[in-house]
Amino acid sequence: MVENNKIQQTVFHTVLILLTLCCVLPFLLLFISSFTSEDALIRNGYSFFPQEWSIATYQYLWNNISLIGHGYFMTIVVTVIGTVCSLVLTILFAYPLSRPDLPYRNIVSFFVFFTMLFNGGLVPTYLMYVNTFHIKNTMFGLIVPSLLMNAFYVIMMRTYFTSNIHDSLIEAARLDGAGEGKILVQLVLPLSKPMISTLALMVGLGYWNDWMNGMYYITDSRLYTIQNILNNMLTNIQFLASSSEITGGASIADLPSVGIRMAIAVIAVFPVLCVYPFFQKSLIKGIAIGGVKG
């Protein structure tokens, strides 16, 4: 039995280590190729053991800081503004829904929940935002569509409020003469810190990684986030690749070199991976809470 146990443990560890490697190695390849010299990349392709290391790509990026510096700045601005607005909206919406004595609460809940079941899809959303609200090529285009508030987070937050903030606590505060706003800010929010930080993390990650709003609504390169820069470089490669088949002329070599593209991808991922170890606990907890039923 004991022997058998040991074998099983070893098997489980082996499988999980292999899966872990699967998760990590592709990043390593990305990372290493950004540190490979351009010659080695062209000669030998992407490799875990490049023949020649080089930091030329990062030097190039540093010398052309305006190329990605601005995109980086936009990403940070959008992430910060978006996350703050999203948290405010979500909390303000979730809190009243968590109060059992609010009349018409169920109707409002349904109003939110229904958006999870049915939606208008891309075409009407796009046409409305562009033609009615004119958000094309504005900051709003990056922040507002689809990311600002979603039913899933509202329900998650509401569930947290209902199950963690005891009613008697709020009643007591009311008897002490505190208004609803005061109760929310001074009583409920401090008690909900863990959930709020988890939510902030998830929303922030969503904004940091978003490239679709930029693709739909932004054509002005001054508003590109780092993800949009990456996305556009891919579109250009694909355009050149398809047109060079026809013309046989224009080559991919005219674009930022392969190494530089990889370096930009690394730079886009880097902050997330750096911050991740510090937040993994609350992120994992958030997934565990939010995953099931919200």
Binding site: C23, N209, L230, V269, Y276
Partner: peptide, 18 residues
Amino acid sequence: QIFILIPYLISMVVVSYI
């Protein structure tokens, strides 16, 4: 747990690069 969550953290654009 920490490592298997890493791919979840990145955008599809970066996945395309990989």
